[in-house]
């Protein structure tokens, strides 16, 4: 008797997205002026550029590399587990990485909100305290998550004005899709787990 192929199609889709995401590009970008400075980030890439010069961090580079590897492994596990969804090991393999995109999205948003709050509310008072050369007025307005605003800093007889633009990029939509598919995969996989439990009880 031919064994019926039990496939968790949500998991297959999720696995494919997990293999694509690490190479899809940045999720969010902030730009000061027209290239004066920029910050682009995703869980796999982080780029800080000031007047055309990149700032690197070995620690960040390695952490992002392993985040990439982690997503790729999770993608392979999800595809394997989903193609053989009724096997005893399928659920474990799928659970390894099924929530990773959701946590990545949530973490990014939390970091951005906290960072924006810090830059807008806390940084101006720190910088004011450091600058002793004449009166200082700092009007920093970084948009929350998405948008464009003008900021200016006056120190002594110099005023610097610029626009700050921030926003999510297209790969972020892929990440949200992966997060949603991940949740659906997990929920759908429970059906196979229930079937497996019922089968073992019968035996």
């Amino acid at each position: 008797m031919r064994k019926k192929l039990t496939v968790n199609w949500f998991g297959v889709g999720f696995g494919v997205l997990m293999l694509i995401l690490p190479f899809a590009g940045y999720w969010w970008r902030a730009e000061v002026g027209s290239g004066a400075a920029s910050l682009s980030m995703s869980p796999f890439n982080f780029d800080v550029n000031v007047v055309g010069i990149q700032i690197h961090s070995t620690l960040v580079r390695y952490i992002l590399l392993f985040a990439k590897i982690s997503f790729l492994i999770a993608g392979v596990f999800a595809i394997l587990g989903s193609l053989f969804a009724d096997r005893w090991w399928a659920g474990r393999l799928i659970r390894f990485g099924v929530m990773k995109p959701l946590w990545s999205v949530v973490t990014l948003i939390v970091v951005l909100v906290a960072g924006t709050f810090f830059v807008n509310m806390v940084l101006p008072s720190i910088v004011s305290g450091m600058v002793r050369d004449g009166p200082t007025q700092i009007n920093l307005r970084v948009p929350l998550l998405c948008g464009t605003s003008e900021s200016n800093i006056t120190a002594g007889n110099v005023t610097v004005r610029t626009t700050i633009s921030v926003g999510f990029l297209t790969p972020f939509l892929l990440a949200i899709a992966a997060a949603v598919l991940g949740i659906l995969t997990r929920i759908y996989q429970k059906r196979f787990a229930k079937k497996e439990t019922a089968k073992s009880k019968k035996e």
């Binding site: 000061v32 002026g33 027209s34 290239g35 004066a36 007047v51 007889n157 110099v158 005023t159 610097v160 004005r161 610029t162 626009t163």
Partner: peptide, 13 residues
């Protein structure tokens, strides 16, 4: 102006 950053300098003050 440089790279979209505008700097205003008041001289002689």
């Amino acid at each position: 102006e440089k790279l979209g950053v505008i700097m205003e300098i008041r001289v002689g003050e």
